[in-house]
Design a protein around this nucleic acid. Sequence first.
DNA 1: CACGCGTGGGG
DNA 2: TCCCCAAGCGT
Length: 342
Amino acid sequence: MQPIAAPLLQWFDANKRLLPFRQEPSAYHIWVSEIMLQQTRVAAAIPYYERFIAALPDPAALAACEPDALRKLWQGLGYYNRVNNMQKAARIVCEQYGGDLPADYDALRSLPGIGDYTAGAVASIAFGIPVPAVDGNVLRVFARLYNDDADVMAPATKKAFTVRVLDQMPKATPGPYNEALMELGALVCIPGTPHCEECPLADLCRGYAAGRADQLPVKPAPKAKGKVPVTVALIESEQGLLLQRRPARGLLAGLWQPAAWEKALTRDELTAALAGIGVQAALDEPLPPAKHVFTHKIWELGGWKGTAPACALPDGYVWAAPEDLAEVYPVPNAFGAYVKAK
DNA sequence: CACGCGTGGGG
DNA sequence: TCCCCAAGCGT
């Protein structure tokens, strides 16, 4: 394979987007943006990034943030464990590195939530350290460039591609090189039907030469998602909406939701379940059926809307007034059919 | 290595 | 409408 760096970097200079985290690319800014961008589109992450940096401008502020306030900043972005890990990492940064991210790949890689990709991105983009940052974009670009049919989801393939990425890297400008590969993947070498006619690497691309760039990269067939019934009780008292906190681990960990059970309950069973937490509810109106598709399962939501007298609640339950629902309690968008918490 | 873990936009 | 996903990480 001929060197790709020169045409790639020239294209990047002329075509890179002016993204907020490229304005003042401190290590903290790059870190926050890279965590947000994991499995997330740039357009979706930008407003979250702006708000997050304004509220928590440095690792010390992140380390000290109250958990519910932190999750509220992340509400709607998904993969909530990312922000929990980021706070753990911020505390380590404050305790062990004086409040600044370490300019060292292995030290970055050891922090919670920072894997091979993010360590490489922060090290190369923020610190100019010549290490690769291989994400889904880079895997797609290289699968096409080398006309390689290997399953890009397999860890072994990622390792082999990482060697090629490092071989091609101009050691003086690792950050722009890594960013340029990702930007090319995001703008030109896109999934499905790539824009090969405007690609700066088309002359070198073996997949293009073979006329099969649109068939790459190869990924395994997706697995079927299981369907899970969820019965929701949307209960209002004069003190607000009944919310419960989800378990600290697993799906939507630690977030708040209207009282709900991951099984199909009849109206009478739901009334009894609510009585079990001290809530004497009148269930007046069925909720419209709704569906929420996660990466690995599908919630089939239903239930009842009703009212109840305000009462004392067990730990992990609250009556949430409208302003607290909007500003205090992070509620996942999985319940968006019934609750608007933004 | 395989799986759990969110969400909203585009074809 | 449905299906594809998008700058991955932890276990």
